[in-house]
């Protein structure tokens, strides 16, 4: 199967700080988790894929075409959309208006289905400024789904949520996966996230230290070194 998304030798520095060094991975189908300790470069990589940052070196391809120099709005039109780690709703908009606003970006979507899937039906007419944190996290997902994406880039979708709230969102993500939605998830809560992804890419200090199945992830010595200490993970 040809890759939907290919990240090829991506490097990024801010000043003299190398945030990403020669990172590569690809996603053909299913879900991928991008993990790593704080400062590993996960969010920077996600921002590069979404077009919010440009790589210093390397390329990002979606369906075989380079997208790493396109503005974010055009990348969304290709079918990639990213959610924010820190929720960014349109404060004066109701939940339904969020979906209405973005629903014509890539053709029509079923607003009722999005509301049902995210569990936001009961608060559809509430303004974002009146919603709980859990609802705002679900609104972040609903907003992204409203553009009818082919690939969802989720930046810490369950970060800061209680276990019950996290379970609700993960339930929605599992349902999306069953429907064939491709996703890349950046998340710190490994146990909850790795239970539903097919592939894991782990970064440490901007380098890839692991790429493989979730089953092999915890047994990997480089991963254990990065998470549990005992010196830096081996490079290469």
């Amino acid at each position: 199967m040809s890759a939907l998304l290919e990240v090829e030798g991506v490097s990024k520095s801010f000043g003299g700080n190398h945030v990403l060094s020669d990172v590569s991975f690809s996603l053909a189908d299913g879900t991928l988790a991008l993990v790593g300790p704080n400062g590993a470069g996960k969010t920077t990589l996600l921002n590069i894929v979404a077009g919010q940052l440009s790589p210093d070196r390397g390329a990002v391809r979606f369906r075989g075409a380079r997208i790493d120099r396109l503005p974010p709005a055009r990348i969304v039109h290709r079918g990639l959309v990213k959610t924010y780690q820190v929720v960014r709703p349109l404060r004066s908009f109701t939940v339904a208006q969020h979906i209405e606003l973005f629903s014509r970006v890539r053709g029509s979507v079923d607003a009722e289905r999005i509301l049902a899937l995210t569990g936001l039906g009961p608060v559809r007419d509430r303004r974002a400024g009146e919603l709980s944190f859990g609802d705002l996290k679900r609104l972040e997902l609903a907003k992204a789904l409203a553009v009818n994406p082919e690939l969802l880039l989720l930046d810490e979708p369950i970060g800061g949520l209680s276990r019950d709230e996290a379970r609700r969102i993960l339930g929605s993500l599992e349902e999306l996966k069953r429907d064939g939605m491709r996703m890349i998830v950046v998340e710190h809560r490994l146990l909850e996230t790795l239970s539903f992804v097919d592939q894991v890419v782990a970064l440490d200090q901007g380098r890839t230290i692991f790429s493989g199945s979730p089953a092999r992830f915890f047994a990997d010595p480089a991963v254990r070194a990065a998470y549990l200490g005992g010196g830096h993970a081996p490079r290469g």
Partner: peptide, 21 residues
Amino acid sequence: RFGLVLRGIRDDEEVLESQGI
């Protein structure tokens, strides 16, 4: 919808851009 986009600009223009508008 035109007005909805204008109000969206006032709320957070960057969010609009990052969502394809």
